[in-house]
Design a protein around this nucleic acid. Structure first.
Lengths: 224, 224
DNA sequence: ATCACGGGAATTGGATGCAATCAGGGCGCG
DNA sequence: CGCGCCCTGATTGCATCCAATTCCCGTGAT
């Protein structure tokens, strides 16, 4: 019988909801996260909220100081570069592994995401947000397809940063073109079981993004 | 003023104690982790124990099935190879970064650990356990010295596996010699600020260990 | 005016109570 | 004799309660 829903615990649901609110910016950096109001808003008690906050602290999305409460972590240019440095390490490796392991549904979804991204464009803000979402799923599929639980765990321990930081990519025409092209090449590489090429494409993709980021950061000092 | 003690919460203390017991094998794979007995043994209540268990699940050391309890995770050869695959990715990168960032106390401690390891040998079981401990600290110092919070996080998300699996290294003379030599070369590389060489040594070190592991696994099917 | 200090409110970490769920065993039925 | 179902005990997950700490603000001294 198909498992309807996910019979998981309340703490994990809260964790997911709070993570989403932090990544979208609904809960901005610096926002205090007091247990009682959150519990009330999310229809539960302080205990699961507390567990969720501890997990999010582990993910690097919130700072907890014992006895003093939790706040949404603040991110700066250094964080962004640090994140991309680690992504530039992990994801090419993941792409290489994925090339010999990814299954048909995964490939199909990647191709679909490419098509969606091509079609969606970046006309308005909503379109840009969709692009960020497509991109996230694309990269996550590849890391998952690498078939290494620990690589997944490493990526999860590192992946989160408010999405606002990423929008710049999709607003820049050259960068968007590069991304779409790389994604297409990646699908080809994975489909053709070419691990070396997949790795190389992914490396180009992320190094390119990193350098673009560096430029942007230097230009407008810090306005995500 | 020097912060005496660690003003941390109880849940983290429990987490550390349980992690240690799992890594040393005091809590063997498959052992059920019921909240109440643990709470009593660790002089606290079920709440912090529960939080600790959730965190350890995130580290991959325990399995939690909602409503059914927690057990110490079982590890197999595939886990070990997966772990070393990711270490082989992360640690050379960390070594390269550390070469331009590590400070004098860090270097001094690394040299000290080398000396201790040389002196300690591997005569009896206690000596082997000490070697495993020295080795753990050596590698952790380098990852920390890389100065990348996310690289540290990635490593922490991945690092745990019962120490029994690692003892084989230090019982094998050739392998122990290789390890000691590489560690010495690493100290030289870091001290001389030679990032490329540090990376190369670390890569050799871990690939060597991985291949040794593969051999051992094939030999005696699965007896850590 | 600034700063140190004290007291009360707010808030967290931890302990405990309670309902829901799961395991296990005895009973009835085929 | 084997199989499945219900009932009971155990255990979790969540809600609530309590103590300890921290925050905040007003007061007074310098």
């Amino acid at each position: 019988m198909a498992d309807r829903g996910i019979p998981t615990t309340n703490a994990f649901r809260v964790q997911d909801e709070l993570r989403e609110e932090i990544l979208t910016g609904t809960l901005p950096p610096g926002a205090r996260l007091r247990a009682e109001p959150l519990a009330e808003r999310l229809r539960t008690s302080r205990t699961p909220v507390r567990e969720a906050l501890i997990l999010l602290a582990r993910e690097g999305l919130v700072d907890i100081e014992p006895r003093r409460g939790a706040v949404v972590r603040s991110f700066d240019a250094a964080d962004l570069l640090d994140l991309y440095d680690v992504r530039g390490l992990i994801e090419p490796h993941a792409a290489r592994r994925a090339a010999t392991r990814i299954d048909a549904p995964g490939l199909a979804r990647l191709a679909e995401l490419c098509a969606l991204a091509e079609a969606r464009g970046a006309a308005d803000d909503a379109a840009v947000e969709d692009q960020v979402g497509f991109n996230e799923e694309f990269h996550r599929i590849i890391v998952d397809a690498a078939g290494s639980p620990r690589l997944e765990a490493a990526m999860r321990a590192v992946a989160g940063i408010p999405r606002a930081f990423r929008k710049a990519f999709w607003r820049d025409d050259a960068q968007r073109e590069q991304s779409l092209f790389c994604h297409g090449q990646l699908v080809d590489a994975l489909e053709g079981r070419r691990p070396h090429f997949a790795e190389a494409v992914m490396r180009m993709h992320i190094v390119g993004a990193t350098e673009f980021l560096t430029e942007v950061i230097h230009d407008d000092a810090d306005a995500p």
